[in-house]
Nucleic acid binder design. Structure first.
Lengths: 205, 205
DNA sequence: CCTACCGATCGGTAGG
DNA sequence: CCTACCGATCGGTAGG
């Protein structure tokens, strides 16, 4: 097998995953057919099975490449800040950028939760969890600036912040005037930060 | 047509909706078949079409009866409090109770967003929106206790709070130790309230 | 409300 | 990687 063959194989595989991703997030797992996936990838139905053993195998490959939670890890890793507020704001900004503007990326997560009962979530989450812990470790030096909230709840709330924003955007975003959406994300981050920091209260040392 | 007939008809219809609801949230819209819905409802396939014109008509009926956002409206309507903090806490508690313990209720929303591209959301949301506005009107008397956040963002954040909690519960809830889940919801409400109130800061009059 | 059926489409495979 | 095919199942309907 030459390198060209490997390149072709990889390219076709990539095309299949890209095609399946689009169809899955647009129609759901059972709503997207192997024939549609093949057609969008530019090959015949039978050709798919040279790359994947089954439809579910394609879904898992799509999850590994596009699962939204996975975008959180690298963002948490590179986020920096002189203050804890700056650290959070930078992390939020990086995650927001990584997830992209369209909230359609959430659909993959929805499909997983509904049509697969969240089977693959624990496996994927274990990849992210250590990164979350590393990020949370940075809080120690600012412990006196944080309200007495358990660190895991703090992180859970931070991740939840994105669901809060993107879910409401998905549900009622199209009904809101543009000027109200402009700074909504900043407002959400602001409320969260004000909610976890003691800033403004009397801090005795 | 006698009242008995109406009662039977209504009962069968209710059975179909209940059966469809369970199957939809467990397998998704395209993953649940009309034959399964009929079987769980205790009738033959053909019998369904005496009550519904199509599969989608069943889905819409299920949405009207079980759409999670609809549970928010009555809770906001009866929520009361001597302080704005109490008002929010009571509303949060009522909504939490109305939604129930199992976060499976969210699945219906996911299916709608993915497999129907959120077609029915605006119609359902218009039912809830006036109630949200009425709730928000109560804030006027406590305006000086609120940080300068636009009221719509405040309400969007309040609704988002539930997504924040239930989505993270659904995703990683099973991985968390029980003692960490115990007060998580209270903590989330607490962070939100601390985030929107000026309490603790210098309030000049 | 059930039985029996419709055409269409499903995921997957054999053979080349 | 394609063509042609498999049995199974899909949503929906006719007739009683």
């Amino acid at each position: 097998m030459t390198e060209d063959d490997l390149g072709r194989r990889g390219h076709t595989r990539t095309e299949i995953i890209a095609s399946a991703y689009q169809l899955f997030i647009q129609r759901g797992y059972h709503g997207a057919s192997m024939r549609q996936i093949a057609q969008n990838a530019g090959i015949a139905l039978g050709g798919i099975y040279n790359h994947f053993a089954s439809k579910e195998a394609i879904f898992i490959a799509v999850m590994i490449d596009h699962y939204p939670l996975m975008a959180i890890a690298p963002a948490l890793q590179v986020a920096q800040g002189q203050t804890i507020e700056e650290l959070f704001r930078n992390a939020a900004l990086l995650i927001d950028q990584a997830l992209g503007q369209s909230p359609d990326f959430l659909n993959l997560m929805f499909i997983e939760l509904v049509e697969f009962h969240g089977q693959h979530v624990p496996q994927l989450f274990e990849t992210v969890y250590p990164k979350v812990l590393l990020f949370a470790q940075q809080f120690e030096k600012w412990q006196n600036e944080l309200r007495p909230v358990p660190i895991p709840i703090l992180m859970r709330g931070f991740i939840g912040l994105f669901f809060s924003y993107f879910m409401t955007d998905k549900l009622i975003g199209s009904l809101l005037p543009v000027e109200m959406k402009q700074d909504a994300f900043d407002c959400f981050v602001d409320i969260y930060l004000h909610g976890i920091l003691v800033k403004g209260e009397a801090v005795t040392e």
